[in-house]
């Protein structure tokens, strides 16, 4: 399936939900926040949020800043 993740076009094996996407990217879901098609997905809902071909996903985390 094709997704846009953090502005990059990426191709994945079919993914059941956001949790599967986080795992496929090698990320720790406890340390990120996710937007799916401009809507924030609560961390508790990653497992039940379906990922659909063409979705635009933003995955962010905290970095150093002033």
């Amino acid at each position: 399936m094709n997704l846009t993740v953090n502005g990059e076009a990426r191709t994945f094996e079919p993914l059941a939900n956001l949790s599967a996407l986080v795992s496929a990217l090698g990320l720790d879901g406890r340390k990120v926040a996710i937007e799916r098609n401009l809507e924030i997905v609560p961390r508790s809902a990653y497992g039940k949020t379906k990922v659909v071909d063409g979705d635009r996903i933003e995955i962010v985390h905290f970095i150093g800043g002033g």
């Binding site: 993740v5 953090n6 502005g7 990059e8 990426r10 990217l25 090698g26 990320l27 720790d28 340390k31 990120v32 926040a33 933003e58 995955i59 962010v60 985390h61 905290f62 970095i63 150093g64 800043g65 002033g66």
Partner: peptide, 29 residues
């Protein structure tokens, strides 16, 4: 401590993360 929010680096998910060093249970973010 002030912190910024940015996209995660998808090309290197193992890079150091702020929260592993400057811990949210020690500082108010």
């Amino acid at each position: 401590v002030t912190v910024a929010l940015r996209r995660v680096n998808l090309s290197d998910p193992s890079q150091p993360m702020l929260v592993d060093h400057v811990k949210p249970d020690r500082f108010t973010f």
